[in-house]
Write a protein that binds this DNA or RNA. Sequence first.
RNA 1: GGGUGAUUGGCCUAGCUCGGUUAUGGCAGCGGACUUUUAAUCCGCUGGUCGGGGGUUCGAAUCCCUCAUCACCCGCCA
Length: 524
Amino acid sequence: MTTVDDVRAVIPNADPEQVKKVLALKKKAWPYTFRAERDLVALRAKLEATFQPGEKGNAPGSKSTKRYKIAGRLASKRGSGGIAFLDVEGQDGKLQAILDKFEMGDAAFDAALHLLNAGDWVGIAGYGMRSKRGEPSIGAEKVTLLAKSLVPLIDLRTADNPELRYGKPYIGLMQGPDARRVLVQRARITQVVRQTLEKDGFLDVAIPVLEKVYGGANAKPFTTKSNAKDMTMYLRISHELALKKLLVGGLERVYHVGPAFRNEDIDTTHNPEFTLMECYAAYWDYNNMMRLTEKLFQKAVAAINGGSLQLKRPDGTILDFANFQTITMKDAIKSHSADTPDAVTWWTEHNKAPMGAGMAPGLDVDEMTDGDIQRILARHDVVIRGGYARGLGIAKLFEVFAEAKLMQPTFVIDHPKETTPLCKAHRKDPSLVERFELFIAGREHANSYSELNDPYAQAKAFSEQEARRFAGDDEAPPTDQDFVDALSHGMPPAGGLGIGIDRMVMTLLGLDSIKQVLPFPQMK
RNA sequence: GGGUGAUUGGCCUAGCUCGGUUAUGGCAGCGGACUUUUAAUCCGCUGGUCGGGGGUUCGAAUCCCUCAUCACCCGCCA
């Protein structure tokens, strides 16, 4: 015979009063199944349309005498003498159940109210009705405890404790349909991304998480050890190299949505593991990928925004996904550095234009010396690990002057070649590569290349990265000789695209922390 | 990596600056009242020794040391 003390010995937080109730139920305490309506929101709407306030479905000659069964978590219990109100909360919304002492009988009524507490899972069988105040309800004929909560329901409206909110995600999710909606909409977004890719003929392929060599991005990896092979292995930092090897093998359009791992610090936009979508299409370049990117975002926005491409943010600004902007990196630096003190200083030094106050055109990197760039970066305390290179300096100028200002969906194109070793040179300017990044709300959301498929150029790019590693850039990836070998067998021309799904969800839902879109975020 | 602040019953919280009789209030819980509530309301009750350890003192939630956990800011993360 189990006692309250037995339970408390292993579940110290358990409320003795609730444990007593469970033990008294004996074998009936934890039932196995319950058939119930799936959609309480729809049922609530239906009852509202069917009945007038105060009208009950068990009255003789009622419009609808249909019986219903509903189930959910008991969110609130309100007694008022011989009548009691239960808020039964399903995943997406709640429906009220009403217990009437005259109808149920004293014993059943008192027993049900005593047994149930907020937080319990409950099943209700009864008829449709509306309360005198008009609330659509189920008039309870039978009440079943489906599962007891042994600890009190925590109300985060008053208990704003981050340890509870993020350390125990179920506590946060229990707070109501709104708390769960983010995860529901996140699922919608990834579903739409997958559907859109599938429709365009992209094949969902399995790729390894554990790798002998990591690559495809600049990041510090997590390491682990394989006992079977007695060697250090790495958790992938991107999906890029594996997917491209499949292009070599003859798969023409491939994608993967899954986690990538980066051993870096945690903040509002970075989690050590995050969900990355990457896709590659043979015979495409970055222009084709821009069109695909637009489509992916437009379909996702439409899916969560009632079909509209004008997405209103919490601060009132409208993001217009109907019209994506395009700007080169150099032009972005120029237009967004206009009238900054740095631009005024530079133009004055070079005596390039008659200077009125606040009239400086932006920085024109093609006219700037390396010294000019380094001076300005130094003024902004920007350090380039592994040493200065002109292209990296230009990329830093973009970060300093332009990145945060790109609110509307904007493709920034044609980066300096030093920024990436995996991208084809620009067909019109060898100092650039055919790359774009999509910026929305000041954050990077997508990254795409006309993929480099010349094995010799790839090998050389790898050795330049190695040089940077030796010079102190601990995020420069090592050479992946296996990848060079793959390219030597011939990879078709291809476009590639990567999208950080967590950030995409954040932006589309108007949230400002990655913790809010992850059910299990890492805490610092 | 640096700095600041916090830790009081299941949850939130007062008290701590200028140490002193049985540690404040709310939510939840338990009991009672009420047949139409919407975080219902009203009355009563149970529950904590104040994050762990050490020290100062006649006496510490209140002062000191230490450990732990957490938060915030800065740095780092194209």
